[in-house]
Design a protein around this nucleic acid. Structure first.
Lengths: 227, 227
DNA sequence: CCGGCTAACTTGTCAGGCAAGTTATGACCG
DNA sequence: CGGTCATAACTTGCCTGACAAGTTAGCCGG
């Protein structure tokens, strides 16, 4: 058997956790339903009880399952309610969600930014221009621009969510299309878009800030050939 | 020892998972740092290796840790990056985030609702009025109204996030103050606010829809004595 | 009929062992 | 001296068996 070094089979624990998750996500097992006992699951899936326990530990951590000693394991009242995930969305919805969140950041930044926030925004925009001038793509600097914008919203929940969605969005955009970013006229566009965002934020105009961010992100999608 | 039936001590697995999570969250263990071996952790924490494995299974599921057979357990590149959580925010930021997300739902609903969406919105608003008329509080119906609004945005990622944030927000609002909702003039307000949201959505006016939702949620906070 | 006890069942934990993968060290050869 | 190979020690992955702690249902006695 030839196996590439980078490809590892899922462990039995991973596979069982996934197998137990599917009926929960599909609604076949509903909130408060009792799962089969550990011994039964071990027999059904031909694994040891230790594997079952570890798989259930994973589902517990994700908030899909709750256990009571002596009683059993049960589908949680709100399955998965501990956490919000972005594994199952199509790219379009994910990218639209990102645009909404970035616009929210911009609108709040417009209302409540500090002088230091503006300074950091301008510095981040300048850093991207500088990186590009040196032959880089400015990706890390563009990310930094968005992080600073989210910071300027002065809401840590929103900032963390913006970072979370941003990471997923970048994966979805499959940066294999990096070469498309090299054209100088596109970078002029980006710079103008950053400047428009900064201008709206500095003017404390949430409507314009929101619109500027949404334009910037929509243009980013076009530049990646995604819209 | 007297223990109330509703209070259970954390299991050793829970306690260890928490103990291992803290240095990661605090930045003491950084991305790619290697955790002590299972045997070492079991000795340090005076538990069996099975407890260690289950605790690490929990952290793996949460995205804080990755393991490689024969090599060890390592802090993940982006700790916790699998999922977004709302466990650590102050209530103000959480409630503000919710207002933003609900407004986003309303704005998208304004742009893309269907006739069935409007029908469902009106039905949900009527259902709340009816529930209140029968002596109930209309809480489930108010939740339903917001769910329908999120559905009318036609973006499943946004809808799921709105539901997630809504659940956390309701917990934060500590519904022990339910009695404040019984006054009839307050319910008249809520009904008027629902109607304003529906009107803006039906008019396909995202700006007005956004504003109507944010007014509704801010008023809700005032009714709960939270602002 | 109700309450108490016990057996069977359940999850929680422990201990020991072996499989599979990794790494470092020592020996050997060119 | 440098490179390669083999082996021992270490690591995670999984199995087995046992007992602790908690739950539930059934039976028996008052």
């Amino acid at each position: 058997m030839t196996v590439q070094a980078d490809i590892r089979l899922p462990s039995r624990v991973d596979a069982l956790a996934e197998a137990l998750l599917q009926p929960i996500l599909a609604g076949d097992w509903r909130p408060h339903d009792r799962l089969p006992s550990e011994h039964a699951l071990a027999a059904q899936h031909e694994v040891s009880r230790a594997v079952v326990r570890e798989a259930i530990a994973r589902l517990k951590s994700d908030g899909y399952v709750e256990t009571r000693q002596g009683k059993g394991a049960f589908v949680a009242a709100a399955p998965g309610g501990n956490a919000f995930r972005l594994d199952v969305e199509g790219d379009t919805h994910l990218l639209e969600l990102r645009a909404l969140i970035e616009a929210d950041c911009a609108a709040l930044a417009a209302e409540r930014h500090t002088a230091a926030d503006l300074t950091a925004l301008r510095a981040a925009s300048d850093a991207m221009r500088d990186a590009v001038a040196k032959g880089g793509l400015g990706l890390a600097e563009d990310i930094r621009f968005h992080d600073v914008l989210a910071e300027a919203a002065h809401n840590p929940a929103l900032r963390r969510f913006a970072a979370f969605v941003g990471r997923h969005a970048r994966e979805a955009m499959q940066l294999a299309r990096l070469s498309q970013l090299r054209e100088q006229n596109r970078l002029v566009e980006i710079e103008a878009e950053h400047a428009a965002i900064i201008k709206a934020v500095a003017a404390r105009d949430p409507v314009a800030a929101r619109a500027a961010v949404q334009h910037h992100i929509a243009s980013g999608l076009r530049r990646h050939g995604l819209s």
